[in-house]
């Protein structure tokens, strides 16, 4: 164990610096309200964690995280952010206490469990002596490519990667369906039973027509709604009666 800590001595400073940057970035995301800054800091967080992945010998993970985590998800978030407000509303203190307590208790429980974990960089930990190291020996004989991670990803766990591709496909399909495969994106409003959810207290479709024809925009929404709501009430009663008969 003494030898192990000696071997990591030069990189330990780098590791500690990266950890400190990660914590600072995460805490500043908590404090910030500007969505643009939050999204950008998320990209910074991904990039710094990618740097730490390099230090942790996970080079494949590092460049995937840098490309996908810091690149693609930042672009996705910016694209979604452009369609929404740029600033988040402040959260009152009274609504922050319960999440804080939950997080503190969960964190303490996990700190309690740290004692059972293997030491950082332990060669003989259960995780590092089992099947993982077996892959290194087998890859050179069986797959004949130098990169063990690629060999495991594409060959030993090929079905896993196939499942991953299915997940990405269904996610892309879901995004297309959610955002309007029929070219109707951005023009969709929810009006179940003829009443808009947003803006609230809005008149229903029929009464909005009557407002525009009368040019009486100062009329309160409740007054405008009167006729249409009565008709819908009648029709609903009718429907209920039909159901009752059935």
């Amino acid at each position: 164990m003494m030898l192990a800590s000696y071997a990591t001595a030069p990189t330990i400073i780098l590791d500690l610096a990266l950890m400190a940057i990660l914590i600072i970035v995460a805490f500043s995301i908590v404090r910030m309200r500007s969505l643009f800054a939050i999204v950008m800091l998320q990209g910074v967080y991904s990039l710094v964690s990618a740097a730490w992945f390099v230090s942790l010998d996970a080079v494949d993970v590092a460049f995937t995280e840098a490309a996908v985590g810091a690149g693609v998800s930042t672009v996705l978030m910016l694209a979604a952010m452009l369609l929404a407000n740029r600033k988040s509303d402040p959260v009152p203190i009274s609504k922050q206490i319960a999440p804080l307590l939950v997080v503190i208790f969960a964190g303490l429980a996990m700190f309690y469990a740290i004692g059972d974990m293997p030491a950082y960089g332990d060669v003989n930990s259960p995780a590092n002596t089992g099947v993982g190291m077996d892959y290194i020996d087998r890859t050179t004989k069986e797959i004949h490519i130098p990169n063990v991670v690629t060999a495991v990803l594409a060959s030993y766990r090929g079905y896993d990667t196939f499942g991953e591709a299915v997940v990405i496909f269904s996610a892309g399909l879901g995004v297309l369906l959610l955002l309007g495969l029929n070219g109707n994106a951005g023009r969709w409003t929810a009006s179940p039973s003829g009443q808009n959810i947003y803006p609230p207290m809005a008149p229903s479709a029929n009464s909005r027509l009557s407002v525009s024809s009368d040019n009486s925009k100062s009329v309160t929404s409740s007054a405008v709604k009167e006729p249409s709501s009565s008709t819908t009430r009648k029709s609903k009663r009718k429907r209920f009666k039909d159901k009752g008969n059935n």
Partner: peptide, 29 residues
Amino acid sequence: YSNPLPHVLILTAIVVGVATLAIGLSLVV
């Protein structure tokens, strides 16, 4: 060598994470 198995699992997890993020963002939109 460092253990390659967690790297493989996390590679999959990163990509799946972006897929779920895309779904979440389109729900937000």
